[in-house]
Amino acid sequence: MSPLLSIQNLRKTYGSSVVLRDLSLDVAEHDVVVLIGASGSGKSTLLRCLDLLETVDDGVIELEGREITDPRADADQVRSRIGIVFQSFNLFPHLSVLDNITLAPRKVHKVPAEVARERALAMLERVGLKHRADAYPDHLSGGQQQRVAIARSLVNDPVLMLFDEVTSALDPELVGEVLAMLRDLKSEGMTMLVATHEMGFARQVADEVCFLDGGRVLERGAPEQVLGEPTEERTQQFLKRIIQAGRL
């Protein structure tokens, strides 16, 4: 079976700095692939390229066998099939929780307001925030905001979810509630690409861990292998620093 997501020889530069070089990676359906690596290794850029928020400079990305990097592809249509959650939540501050979630269904997918509302409430129930439906983002904790952001993506029935360091801006005691949601999603069979510094989470949930360095996948494999017995020296150095910081 062909992979759900296939990335071949991806290249992305900003001016003279090359952020992704010749990066290739496949993600099978229902798999959870965790991206690890130092800041600046290209994790965020990769996720942004996948959601077509950036234009790649070379290479091919295929979603469900169709090339989405083709300038003729309908970028809006592609983005509506992929969900992305950002480190800084990016909820719309002028909309209530419910309106944040129903905006895309109503305006993009033309779902009737009543149906969109029902679906949003069901989604909020799932993330345990139904009682905050009419609250505004400012009045929620970081963890709650991030759960709303995830619900906002999920309500569009994406085939692929991208998570860009979604717990990095959260207080430690709020990290757990967001990671629990990601675990739930995995058990429901969602295909996910997760950039994170939470090594414990990577070890438990990942089907595959990829270590990014200098804009390419330097090492990939089962979590026990990459996190436990890395073969590349750069991976070993990276994990050593993480251990020194007390994060593993």
């Binding site: 020889n9 290249r11 090359v18 070089r21 070379d58 290479g59 091919v60 083709d70 300038p71 003729r72």
Partner: peptide
């Protein structure tokens, strides 16, 4: 880091299309 990137045929076609 040395960088000897030459646009692939596909990228050249994309650039031409754009």
């Amino acid at each position: 880091m040395s960088d000897t990137w030459v646009p692939s045929a596909r990228q050249q076609e994309r650039d031409a299309y754009r």
